[in-house]
Simulated assay, not measured.
Amino acid sequence: MGERGRVSLGVGWITLFLIGIDLFVVSPLLPFISDAYQVSSAMTGWMVTVFAITYAIFAPFFGWLSDKNGRRSYITFGLVLFVISNILTAFAPSFFWLIISRILVGLSVAAIAPLLYAIIGDIAPPNRTGTWLSILASGHLTALWAGAPFGTLLEHFLGWRSVFVALAIMGLILAVVNFITWRNEPKSNSTRNLLGGNLLRIFGSVSVTASWAIAMYALYVYLGAALYSEIRFSSSEIATAIIFYGIGAVIGSLTGGQLTDRFGEKKISKVTLIFLTLVLVCLGIFFTSGIWIYFLLFLWALVGYAGFTSYTARLVVEYPNDRGSAMAWNMTALYIGITLGSMLGGFVISKWGYTFLPYVCSIAAILSFFLSTQKVKETKMESAV
């Protein structure tokens, strides 16, 4: 990897880490925000909900625009909006404006995250696409377990508003850095109207990601409650379990990229989905086995995120001219899967309890595998174009 490659990946990694921190830092701050605005915890939870909805709606729009007009300007726009919206979050005069600020954050991240995946896919060497994307993805996954401690520590010394001020300052620096870094971005060869045909093919492809997200998050959302209810884990033991999961996710992402470059995107994405199904079944069988749960959570995340990285690389290869749109719809499918997974998990818990969740997730994983074996053909309209 040359110096330019290291710089590009470093900038992308730090940027995804920053917006990941913004997403994962909100949860531990909700009690303090509730007190500040005198609203219930359920109401403050809308800060996360409106972010996810806005992101899912607008990411495909920015992906389509970036395929036609280039990615640099939209990434820079997203980071500038990220700065403004986090300042508004820090100093919102009312809870209404706080919600508005999180909508704007969702809009800003929609213009950043999928386009970074697309631009790294643009510049990565053909035989190193998986590795480059896995390094990029590890920035977001690192924020998964580092975001909460960062926010809690800063809140303890300076108050919860300081967290968003810090995010705004870092975002401003990265807006300048990204604008400089991507000044020589490759030009897109996309000349077709995406709505004319390729969109259906993309929908078929990203349905794999939606099913994968259900397999990963229907249980993860309720993991702390499940560990407490079924094994009587203490808060420190639950935190340790989450750390094992987070480390497995980072290692899995990096390992998945290297395996993808060596054996191919299709092969690794399918193999990991099979192993994910088996690991989830084992997790269901041995969920109450005590200390073994740490290893199983590590293995679950390791296999799961190796598969996500390899499938992302597969989309990058399969959609060379619509890469921004494919990455954006893939992220939208991810959020849809997370939402459906959390809803499904709640239903399963109310009917059969926590220990049944891993088996339901395994069904979603095997569905994802079968979807990944299907090939959605291009429509006649696209072929004509």
Rank of each mutant, 00 (worst) to 15 (best):
F58Y: 10
V163G: 08
Y354R: 11
R128D: 13
V25A: 12
F263N: 06
F295W: 04
D322F: 08
S73M: 14
S207G: 11
M170W: 01
P114V: 12
G204A: 09
W182P: 00
G159M: 09
L299A: 14
L199H: 02
V109G: 02
V80W: 05
G196H: 11
K380V: 12
M47R: 01
T49I: 01
S73F: 08
L104P: 00
K377M: 12
W97L: 15
V7T: 15
I173N: 09
T191C: 00
A137H: 07
M331Q: 13
Y117C: 00
Y74S: 07
V11N: 03
T54D: 02
E382C: 05
I243M: 14
S134E: 06
V317R: 15
L199Q: 08
S34H: 04
A384Q: 11
V105A: 15
R128N: 14
L371I: 05
I247N: 09
F58V: 14
W145I: 13
F77Q: 03
S253P: 08
F150A: 09
G20C: 06
L115N: 12
R192W: 01
L227Q: 01
L315R: 04
G45L: 06
V176W: 10
M170Y: 00
S253C: 09
S190P: 06
Y359A: 05
I169G: 07
G147V: 04
L195M: 13
M327F: 00
F298D: 09
S27F: 11
G10N: 09
V250A: 01
F24T: 09
L9P: 00
I285D: 10
A52E: 13
T309G: 02
I123H: 05
Y228P: 03
G346P: 10
I338P: 02
K266D: 12
L273G: 02
P320H: 10
A143Q: 08
I293S: 06
V83M: 05
I75D: 01
V385Y: 15
W352S: 15
F203S: 10
S234D: 11
I363Y: 07
V80T: 13
N330M: 08
T373C: 09
A42N: 13
S350R: 14
S41Y: 13
F203C: 08
N330Y: 04
F62I: 06
R6N: 11
E230L: 14
V221S: 15
F179N: 11
Y55S: 04
L167M: 12
A210C: 12
F356M: 14
F298K: 07
F308V: 10
V26M: 12
L254E: 02
L200M: 13
L280V: 04
V109C: 07
V281W: 09
G139L: 06
I285Q: 10
G257M: 03
G70R: 07
V83W: 01
T142D: 04
T181P: 03
S138G: 11
S188F: 07
F203A: 08
F62W: 10
A213E: 03
G197L: 07
V271Q: 07
G246Y: 02
N189K: 15
G337N: 03
Y220K: 07
W46D: 11
L174I: 12
A143P: 06
V271S: 05
R161P: 00
G353P: 13
S372L: 03
I21F: 13
M381Q: 11
N184V: 01
V360T: 14
L302K: 01
I338N: 09
A384P: 00
T272E: 05
I99P: 03
L104K: 03
R323W: 00
Y319L: 05
